[in-house]
Design a binder for these strands. Structure first.
Length: 216
DNA sequence: GACCAGGCACATC
DNA sequence: GATGTGCATGGT
């Protein structure tokens, strides 16, 4: 399995090169982006982030002081704007109550404790939590998303109904615990997913077209 | 116009 | 534990 997973990574990296993720300037921007991109195309998230930036709301303090209706209006392009406003608020409320708004303190928590904290926030599930862990806190945690599940099942590496934690464990138990590797690997999966592994696959030119499960 | 996008919570069985 | 549904904009 280790060989298979490294093989996939090698093919993707050779084809696409480094992705320079996360596409956000600060840890807080990464967190906001992680929440806004839930089931949403990134180009729509970018519009929302730009709106927040222009209003100088991309800091925990500034966003905490803003109102729900104002935030909702600004993040509107990213879709689900009412529920995402609540989710941002839930995160800020947690940050302010447990860490007095000090984001570094939160992100410097021990990895397992930080993950538990994030998962307790309503609106932050496993993928969002792990994206924050990896891309905002630089913790060696592998992120699983729709594309990861789809690619693994289509190549016979995992069943299509495999659980999140199961797939995450597949990567983390077979690859060395390395922030840089996990960062690049997930970004490359999203890249190949967007281009080739949509619900209607375009396998002809996909760099993974010859990848099959191998024993060992 | 249909389909899709870097999920999640909640209801129901 | 599995399955279904609401949430919503904007690009292809």
């Amino acid at each position: 399995m280790r060989r298979t997973l490294l093989g996939i990574y090698g093919k993707l990296y050779k084809k696409f090169g480094p992705q320079y993720w996360w596409p956000g300037d600060t840890p807080f921007e990464v967190i906001v982006g992680a929440i806004l991109t839930q089931n949403t195309a990134w180009y729509n998230v970018e519009k929302a982030i730009t709106n927040l930036q222009q209003k100088k709301l991309l800091s925990p303090k500034a966003l905490s002081r803003s109102t729900d209706s104002k935030i909702a209006a600004l993040i509107r392009p990213s879709g689900y704007y009412n529920i995402k406003t609540k989710r941002l608020r839930n995160f800020l409320t947690f940050l302010n109550s447990k860490f007095k708004g000090n984001l570094s303190k939160l992100l410097n928590e021990r990895t397992d404790l930080l993950r538990e904290d994030l998962l307790r926030i309503k609106g932050i599930g496993p993928e969002t939590a792990d994206s924050i862990l990896l891309y905002a806190a630089n913790k060696p945690v592998f992120v699983i998303d729709t594309y990861t599940k789809r690619i693994l099942s289509r190549h016979g590496i995992a069943p299509k109904d495999a659980k999140y934690e199961k797939l995450q464990n597949l990567f983390m138990s077979n690859l060395t615990s390395d922030v840089k590797l996990y960062n690049e690997y997930h970004a490359l999966i999203v890249k190949v997913g967007k281009e080739f592994c949509k619900p209607k696959p375009k396998c002809a030119l996909c760099p993974l077209k010859n990848i099959k499960r191998k024993k060992g």
